[in-house]
Amino acid sequence: MTSDYAKPLPRPNRLSQPFWDGTKRHELLLQKCNDCGHVWFPPSQRCPKCLSTEYEWSKASGRGKVWSWIVMWQRYFPAFEADIPYNVAYVELEEGPRLMTNIVGCDNDAIHCDMAVEVVFEDVTSEISLPKFCPLSS
């Protein structure tokens, strides 16, 4: 954890605060509909399947697979310059939703589509922990 963390940070709001509270505790939480059981991400105030507003924040398994991944060579964010070339992965969770993240714990060359991964949490500031993914230890 560094106090001079310069990369862009999420700005938790009323909608996403439970998600970021979860990652701070190193738990990956997703909204789950109390009426139809659908699980979704990113947060919204009602179930996109049945439109119910009754939901709970449910702990996800943290496991998933890499739907796709890229290696960013362009410097769009100055704070990422030292990381170039860095990967960005789109991970499909066991529960269904997909999220943008980074793969850690292996070289970019070792990443492949459908690779099994599990969540790890990076405490980047005192308030924010980012969910990243590493190859699933089988």
Binding site: Q17, F19, P43, S44, Y76
Partner: peptide
């Protein structure tokens, strides 16, 4: 508005989104 950030992971730009699809 969701308070989730792609930028936190260095993800940005339509080109990168299309790159994801092409890799797949």
């Amino acid at each position: 508005e969701t308070g989730i950030s792609d930028a936190a992971f260095g993800m940005t730009s339509p080109g990168a989104s299309v790159a994801h699809m092409f890799r797949r």
